[in-house]
């Protein structure tokens, strides 16, 4: 009995350091952030202002631009990437396909780049006199160079293309490994019944992969809601504020302009609320039967 108790006490020691570290660097700062968000003032001179920071959000044009941009990235990029990833994984799951490993490795390769490094490369590739425009004009795909980085619309498109390039292969690997666990006899049965490829995809593949699609859409949503590295290094938020994201705005409020920590943390809680809302929504859409 005393031996059991000793083992039990040791058990607590095993988890102690991790629990302390996560509390110290996640939960404690989170609580601090909540308190800060009800304070205002410049730098270290802070005083309580109630809900003022949260009310200010609704009248702050830069915040509204930042949240609109972030929504555009989220609503366009995440679905496009998931569909593309699914489609590629289905093509790659074909048993008779040759060069499978080669295709898989090539499409997965962007994952090895750091977000900053690939952002800088994309900035150069998409420059007005850059390689992409030269190629597109040379082969008459477009009549004249597109202002990828300096036009408010195209700058957003560039950001979306960049994120899609970086993350599609990553998501594809999840689908591919899930597909390999799907019982092949289901597909055989569907083929015998004469189901079309499209029907097989929508009626078998997607429902079978529902848990993993849910998982990837939640992680992608959480990632895109926090997008920062790409914005800073591809467009710097410009032109104007046309590509600013919520995270970049928080960074600017805290470390670029005169520090307004109280308001910056209030903005950051908007991301928390959005993450909770979108995660709940995705669970609801996917139905809870799978979990």
């Amino acid at each position: 009995m005393s031996n059991r108790m000793k083992i039990n006490a040791t058990g607590w020691f095993f988890i102690a350091i991790a629990t302390v570290v996560i509390t110290l660097f996640y939960f404690y700062p989170m609580a601090q952030a909540l308190i800060l968000s009800f304070q205002s003032g410049l730098g270290a001179n802070l005083s309580f202002v109630g809900f003022d920071n949260y009310i200010r959000l609704f009248h702050d044009p830069t915040f509204i631009t930042a949240i609109t941009n972030t929504f555009i990235y989220l609503l366009v990029q995440v679905p496009v990437m998931i569909v593309l990833g699914l489609f590629l994984s289905v093509l790659l799951n074909d048993k008779k396909l040759k060069f499978k490993g080669l295709f898989r490795t090539a499409i997965f390769l962007p994952v090895i780049t750091s977000l900053v490094a690939y952002s800088v490369i994309f900035k150069y590739l998409f420059a007005t006199d850059g390689v992409l425009n030269q190629f597109l004009v040379k082969f008459s795909i477009i009549p004249e160079a597109i202002e990828w980085l300096t036009d408010p619309f195209w700058a957003k498109v560039t950001i979306i293309i960049a994120i899609t390039w970086r993350w599609t292969g990553y998501n594809m690997i999840f689908y591919l490994s899930a597909l390999q666990n799907v019982d092949q006899s289901i597909y055989e049965a569907a083929r015998i019944d004469g189901a079309s490829a499209f029907k097989v995809f929508t009626r078998i593949t997607i429902p079978m992969l529902k848990p993993i699609i849910l998982f990837t859409s939640i992680t992608s949503t959480i990632g895109t809601l926090q997008i920062f590295d790409e914005i800073m290094n591809i467009t710097g938020g410009g032109p104007g504020n046309a590509t600013t994201s919520i995270s970049q705005y928080i960074y600017n409020l805290s470390f670029k302009y005169t520090p307004d920590f109280g308001y910056a943390t209030a903005v950051s809680f908007v991301i928390v609320i959005l993450i909770i809302l979108f995660t709940a929504l995705q669970f609801r859409v996917a139905g809870d039967k799978n979990d």
Binding site: I15, P29, M30, I222, Y251, S268, I276
Partner: peptide, 23 residues
């Protein structure tokens, strides 16, 4: 405790950035 620790995965870094900097 384990489940509470898992919740920390949902906390965006943007929230932690300012308090951590002050800490």
């Amino acid at each position: 405790i384990f489940n509470i620790l898992l919740l920390s995965m949902m906390i965006p870094f943007a929230v932690l950035m300012v308090p951590l900097y002050r800490m």
